[in-house]
Design a binder for these strands. Sequence first.
DNA 1: CTGAAAGCGCTTACAG
DNA 2: CTGAAAGCGCTTACAG
Lengths: 335, 335
Amino acid sequence: MHDVAAVAGVSLSTVSRVVNGHGGVREDLAERVRAAVDMLGYRRDLTASTLRRADRVSASVGLVLGDVSNPFFAAIHRGVEEVARSRGVLTFVGSSDEDPERERELVHGFCGRGVDGLLIASVARDQTYLLRDLQAGMGVVFIDRPPEAIDADAVLIDNTAAAAAAVDHLVESGHRRIAFLGDREQIFTARERRRGYREALARHLIPLDEALVCTGLESSEAAFSATRTLLALNDPPTALLPSQNLITGGAVHALRAEGRQQEVAVVGIDDLTLADALEPGVTVIAQDPIGLGHTAAQLLFARLDGETGPPRQVFIPTQLIVRGSGEIAPATLTG
Amino acid sequence: MHDVAAVAGVSLSTVSRVVNGHGGVREDLAERVRAAVDMLGYRRDLTASTLRRADRVSASVGLVLGDVSNPFFAAIHRGVEEVARSRGVLTFVGSSDEDPERERELVHGFCGRGVDGLLIASVARDQTYLLRDLQAGMGVVFIDRPPEAIDADAVLIDNTAAAAAAVDHLVESGHRRIAFLGDREQIFTARERRRGYREALARHLIPLDEALVCTGLESSEAAFSATRTLLALNDPPTALLPSQNLITGGAVHALRAEGRQQEVAVVGIDDLTLADALEPGVTVIAQDPIGLGHTAAQLLFARLDGETGPPRQVFIPTQLIVRGSGEIAPATLTG
DNA sequence: CTGAAAGCGCTTACAG
DNA sequence: CTGAAAGCGCTTACAG
């Protein structure tokens, strides 16, 4: 900028005004500045600008996901990026791997690099570690999981309703022995979906069989093993309710490994690529992760634009997609 | 930091030394500084630090991908993140959507925010727009696609070999009418894979039938339509070579829509989730996108650590995974 | 309309 | 070992 001012023969102030489009600069001077900028290939140092300007805006946000390579989170990322892009905002992204410690490190890393706001799929027990940043004016929106012990905007799905819808659908197909395959219970959605499962069974007057409830499945492989164990029970389930995409994948693989995919019903939560090309197709309660990302980013920018008012919780609808696996009737009992 | 110094009753210099762990500070003073830091919840402003320090290191990098929600790119992202994390480096990520203009915007946005290096899956015709940043010492590593008209490190796969391996495998299964389904030709990998296809056909003395070559497929849906058109030809292909994951998905769906998945062979480039659960399973030339990300990040950090020497091109191996679809023999000609 | 000067939060020679 | 001062690249009152 110093060089630009020298070449254009004006002061730093004038260069700054032109570069920021602040106007009120005589056209011939502005033209000289633009020429110097082009000639020197000058580009403003955004971080220095942020440091000095009154509003301290950096045009960057931080996004904390469980795992950026999980299609569910990757789609959220995409949704966030689309909204951010429309405002010239760039996105730091990181995976917590569902580790609260790692989540905090990412958040502090993002804050230390001056982001204007945070979008967090939080796995922390509570988010009081954010209080200081919130009070300092940092925008924060929670995605997929609500905050605990602090107040902030959140974009969620109705997890209990999603699980209940899966149970309802399987019960309609005639099932009463429905196994639940859940993720680690420190994850809000895992707990809520299990609760939805339990409550729906109760509503249908089906006794809960703890032998049919698997939790803590943290990978497709874990779900694969758990499913095989379930299928080997004396009184195995006639239907499976895997509670997220990776688990559904593991369950589908296990059914195939046993050759029982046409016999044991499946309704998964969250959709999968190629789910409709399997035989049978996999019936799911689909989420709208891009919509989650869009909405969360919109809430965040609304706050950064100065919107006040109490924190909002927005729920993104889910949708039952019937493809075959959820409509398999239980085998008639022999003997 | 000002407040910390006041509370601890020391100078800014001393606070800076303690916060940066520079040592050479009397233990009782250091302890007072740490107490003040804890009490005030102080955290250093990394951007201000970067601005002032001699090495100007920001501990952040920028990653430009085609689309963050494509599983191939999401896995690269994951690989990059893992290496970056091990060094305390955070990652800006963005999707070019295979638009050179958008790529430049992202790169300039990242540079303007002071990243130490860039990892780019470039779609630009040439990367001379980076020359200025390169000369200014910015680390740049290309991923999946090599630079053109500039010199820089790159991590790639052997695209022609991958396509040729797919052709070879299909020829071994008896095919001679092999259709190629390619992405937009401004993408390096799309061009190279088509070239590999063409050269392999020539090697097998199979005449190239332009009616069997589809290019410019930019989505699963486009691949779906193109495949249906191919299947409707008077003299349709007996095998398909979709050149990336989304296209393979579209082709698989089209075959199913026509009920011809057991009749027309498929060998795709790049692996798909659930590819092994389909019937038939989808034979692919798998890439190692996490490995691409790992290696690219390692190259970048080696450069940032001061490694000199000529630019390197590293090739990550691919692997044929046999699952059924590639081993379907061509139907015997009737008549 | 334009420029000289102060200062954002930090680091780093330089004296003491 | 410690602190006062300069300065990274920028913006923004404030005078003129």
